[in-house]
Nucleic acid binder design. Structure first.
Lengths: 222, 222
DNA sequence: TTAAATGTAAATTTTTTGTAAAAAAGTATA
DNA sequence: TATACTTTTTTACAAAAAATTTACATTTAA
């Protein structure tokens, strides 16, 4: 991941550069905002900009504005000015976060991660064994390949995945599906499980994923 | 936009509720995290959670974790504890931002906006696949050529474009159009989607752009 | 061995969706 | 204001998809 750091306090610049490099980021540091803007507009290989507000030649807000004209790269403001007015202006001009100096480099790092996670849509994606649940997409991937599930199949499978190795009774399943008030009869559930198994290429006699618990219900083997 | 506020300090709760309501947000306030979690898991109509860390019964971090199991809703931590360790933990558990009390409500507001903007892809240039949104002209260009959309078609399509690959329920669509005061019935939405598809030369049986998610809603394929 | 429970193919029912066409609501124009 | 035009919503019905039930074979525990 490539970070553009625009910071004219060379001591701070070096500190942040070292810290980020130690955390596997590639850092391009600039003390001149004009040169930084030139670099940004000629290249397109940056993943995040860390921007100081007090800069020579050009005001940090202007830099922010100018970046937004050419790119939607995440921008974190790193500034000694921490009053509300500056924050309002920064967010107004399109910044994603604002850190008031002095701050722990670690905090910069976790805020960067939060932004990346949000941008990449990684929030809410859960990995359970070889299955990946993306609730926003309403999709479950098995080893990266999407399963073609109907709505109830999807919801039953999510319920199972969320309770690995626990026996879920048919009653529990029927009562805990997300969304409307389903009222699934036992045999309907059996049918859905059967269809789920076939889509997972699972075999009820020696199940890899969904085990029948005789007299009770089903269990996901996690 | 619907905000879930989980805060047991009733004074703070009222202050934030009033402030946010004055800024056109619908606020559901909870002082009991268990009840809040129940509400979150049974409904799916929230756009953001503001979460205090010090709560009765359940630790705020646990609440955060539990929310992440069922939703990718943006979470902003609002806590009296402001040390680095708490921040690290909060972001670790999937929070999007962290405000240490006391803070100006205005700062909460601008940080919320920054998150929404980022989620909706409203930052900077709006090019989504072969579509380019020109909000000033109220136009959507496909490969440079403007689509002839009516107002509601335009707004529905923007909503879809801003959530690529995500399943949007009819309820969500109806509740999140720009004008905000629409109250589209399900079949009206279907009709608009049908008209949109025909203008995009899309085919519902093997859609290139708008896929129907049976029993739920629609999804833009991005 | 037997009665209860489960698996599942096939049939059936229910729900949801697509869309044409009509009706209603909203805008613009003369 | 009256009129034509546009947009939006509703209605209605066919088609599609999903969910459920049925029926019978199979499996299981006692």
């Amino acid at each position: 991941m490539k970070i553009y750091l625009i910071e004219d306090d060379l001591e701070m610049q070096e500190l942040l550069t070292d810290y980020l490099q130690n955390h596997d980021y590639t850092v391009f540091a600039f003390d001149d905002p004009v040169i930084a803007l030139e670099a940004l507009s000629s290249r397109n290989d940056y993943d995040l900009v860390i921007l100081d507000l007090m800069l020579p030649k050009l005001d940090g807000f202007d830099v922010c504005k100018k970046i937004r004209l050419i790119s939607n790269v995440p921008i974190i403001i790193s500034s000694a000015r921490g009053n509300l007015g500056d924050k309002v202006a920064a967010f107004e001009y399109g910044a994603d976060d604002y850190l008031a100096k002095p701050y722990e480099p670690k905090e910069l790092l976790i805020r960067m991660d939060a932004i990346f996670r949000r941008i990449k849509g990684l929030v809410g994606v859960q990995q359970i064994g070889e299955f990946q649940i993306d609730e926003r997409k309403m999709e479950i991937l098995q080893d990266g390949y999407p399963l073609e599930l109907t709505r109830i199949e999807y919801e039953i499978f999510i319920l199972l995945l969320h309770h690995p190795n626990q026996v879920l009774s048919r009653e529990y399943i029927s009562g805990h599906l997300k969304g409307e008030n389903y009222n699934l009869k036992d045999r309907a559930i059996d049918m859905h499980i059967s269809n789920l198994r076939s889509k997972l290429f699972d075999d009820f006699k020696s199940p890899k994923y969904i085990k029948s618990i005789w007299g009770v219900g089903y269990k996901f083997i996690g």
